[in-house]
Structure formats: structure tokens, C-alpha cells
């Protein structure tokens, strides 16, 4: 260590200008850093949401500024079987598609977590349905489900398994199942890749320990993999439920809510009533009706699944 160097070197006296003093001010920094985010949120989220909620309580139509009508829109909707059908189908669609997506997605993730040949190639393939823009895949499904030109019908007929074309979207129940199948197909990659990421955080030595403890493959899944995956599962499921419940593109592109309004989701019905139908107030009321479901789904998966004692900081003895 050199002593002389310590004597000759002095830190430069810090003469701060007003600008650098301003940037050292915590309050100023907080305001400055938050302002853009808050601004964007206000303009693009809070304002449309607020406007939507407001419209739901007015009788606005396209081209005519409405007046406040209280709960009139909701009273009307409560007596409207099409609205109730949309609620039923939204819940049904979300429920069945979520079960399908998570069943198949988890299965795929478990499969990909093993040592497989061409593993990275398979992972890339699995992402494909998600990379394709939804409308494009919706159009593809539209063709697949076409009453006359459906490739599935063609294959069945060529194989001699059927005489006639399959009815995919011309009657209510087949149309509902067809839409659910398309949604599952589209949702699997997100679930599979997210869960695969979760699986890879589980230390292999836990499986080895479980193996020595006498666990079968099923027991290793049941007692090690599944509980450790639950927190991630909960988050992925929350997102998936929200995306599915608010889905619009697939249904609108394939069936437009038909046949006879049997496949309307709340989102497609809201659009149908509000924009082509011109009843902005009523459409907004339908959209607002989605909010309680979404809040419930979010709270449920957050509290029931995501919060785990073994992960939290607090002690419990």
C-alpha cells in the first residue's frame, strides 16, 4: 500500500448543480418514473374501462348520446334468454377448455421433461399453434369445420368410415364442442411450455430421494411433482381462464355466435349487440357482466392454489 498516494489524492469536492440535486430527490424521482406508466394506464386501461362501465348505465346507441338509465340495461338482459345462454356457454367453454388444456398441456410438459430424441425440435413444434395469429388459425378451423369441404369429413369418407359429411358447426352442440376443441388446440402451447418451465425448477435429486423412499412413478407425480408445480399451475391457470373467458376471435371467426346464437360468448354477444347492432349501452352492460366472473376466477386461483405455506416467509409454529 502506498502512503504517498493517499496524501496526494483527494476526492473532488462535489459541487452539485440544481439538476443533479433534483435527480437525487426521491419524491421527484418517484413522480417522474411513475408518470409515464400511470399515464399509459389511464389512457388505455382506466379510461376505456370507466367509459364501458358508464355506458352500461346509459341508453347510448351509435350516433346518439345516451342518458343515464340506471339498471335498465341489466334488467332487460336478465330477461333475455340469449344473454343467459351466452353466460352458460362462456362458463361451459371456459370450464371444459381449461380442463382439456391443462390435462393435455401437463401431459405434454411431463413428456418433454424426459429425455427424448429431438427434444428441442419437439418443443419448437409445440409452440406453433401459439405463434400463428389467432385469426389465421380460426380461419383454418373454419375450413376444417366446413360443412362441405371439411378435411376431416373427407378423410373419414375416403377411409370408408362414414357415408356423409360430419356436421361440425351447423347445430348447437356440435358447434360448441368444435369451438372448444379449437380453443384447446390453441391454448395447449402456453400451458405446456409454462408448466415445462415449472417442471424444470424441480431438483432431480427430489425424484431420486422419492425413488429410494419407495415411490412409484405415479406416487412421484402425486406427492412431489404436483404439489411443487401447484403455485405455477395456479398462475398459469388464472391467465388461461381469463383469456378463455374473454375469448372473442375464435368464436367470431368460426361461427359468429351461430347457429341461432347458441355459441355466443359474452364477448361476442357484447360486440354483436354493441357494434353491428348499434346498442352501445346494452353491449357495454354485457361486457360489464363479465367482471364478476373474472374477479372470482382470479381470486379463487390466487387464494386457493397459489399461496402455499411452505413458500411463504412467515413461520408457523
Amino acid at each position: 500500500m502506498s502512503v504517498t498516494a493517499a496524501e496526494t489524492w483527494r476526492p473532488r469536492a462535489t459541487q452539485q448543480g440544481w439538476l443533479s440535486r433534483l435527480f437525487d430527490n426521491k419524491a421527484f424521482l418517484i413522480v417522474m418514473c411513475l408518470a409515464p406508466a400511470i399515464g399509459l394506464l389511464m389512457v388505455f386501461l382506466t379510461y376505456p374501462l370507466g367509459l364501458g362501465v358508464w355506458l352500461a348505465f346509459t341508453d347510448t346507441t351509435i350516433g346518439q348520446r345516451g342518458i343515464y338509465v340506471g339498471l335498465e340495461n341489466f334488467e332487460f338482459l336478465f330477461g333475455d334468454p340469449i344473454f343467459w345462454n351466452a353466460i352458460f356457454f362462456s362458463v361451459f367453454y371456459t370450464g371444459v377448455a381449461t380442463v382439456g388444456k391443462f390435462g393435455l398441456g401437463l401431459w405434454l410438459a411431463l413428456l418433454l421433461n424426459n429425455h427424448l430424441p429431438f427434444k428441442s425440435f419437439l418443443r419448437a413444434i409445440i409452440l406453433l399453434p401459439w405463434i400463428v395469429p389467432t385469426v389465421l388459425s380460426a380461419i383454418a378451423f373454419w375450413w376444417i369445420y366446413d360443412p362441405q369441404f371439411s378435411i376431416i369429413s373427407w378423410v373419414f369418407i375416403e377411409l370408408g368410415l362414414r357415408e356423409t359429411n360430419i356436421d361440425f358447426i351447423n347445430t348447437a352442440w356440435p358447434a360448441r364442442w368444435s369451438l372448444i376443441a379449437a380453443n384447446i388446440w390453441r391454448g395447449i402451447p402456453f400451458v405446456a411450455i409454462s408448466l415445462l418451465a415449472g417442471l424444470q425448477t424441480i431438483s432431480p435429486s427430489l425424484y431420486e430421494a422419492a425413488m429410494l423412499d419407495g415411490a412409484t412413478a405415479w406416487q412421484r407425480f402425486r406427492f412431489v411433482t404436483f404439489p411443487m408445480l401447484l403455485p405455477i399451475l395456479a398462475i398459469v391457470m388464472t391467465f388461461s381462464i381469463i383469456f378463455t373467458f374473454t375469448d372473442f376471435q375464435l368464436v367470431y371467426a368460426i361461427t359468429r355466435g351461430g347457429p341461432v346464437n347458441s355459441t355466443h360468448l359474452l364477448a361476442t354477444l357484447a360486440f354483436q349487440r354493441g357494434i353491428p347492432g348499434g346498442q352501445l349501452g346494452e353491449g357495454a352492460a354485457i361486457a360489464v357482466a363479465m367482471i364478476p366472473f373474472l374477479v372470482f376466477a382470479t381470486l379463487f386461483s390466487y387464494f386457493a392454489l397459489a399461496r402455499r405455506k411452505w413458500q411463504q416467509g412467515e413461520s408457523n409454529d
Binding site: 431420486e208 423412499d213 415411490a215
Partner: peptide, 29 residues
């Protein structure tokens, strides 16, 4: 297979099941 060899192993990183209490960890087998 490992489970039929009647051996127990202590791992370098301990490999305790993080989602189980000490009791459950020990009682798992």
C-alpha cells in the same frame, strides 16, 4: 430397482421435500 434394494441415502444437498414438514419428510417412506 432402487426402492427394492432396502437402502437409504443422504444426499449432498439433502433433497428434502420443500413442501412437506419435517415430520412428513421423515414419514414419507
Amino acid at each position: 430397482p432402487p426402492k427394492d434394494r432396502d437402502i437409504a441415502m443422504v444426499f449432498q444437498n439433502y433433497a428434502l421435500y420443500p413442501h412437506m414438514t419435517v415430520f412428513q419428510n421423515m414419514a414419507f417412506s
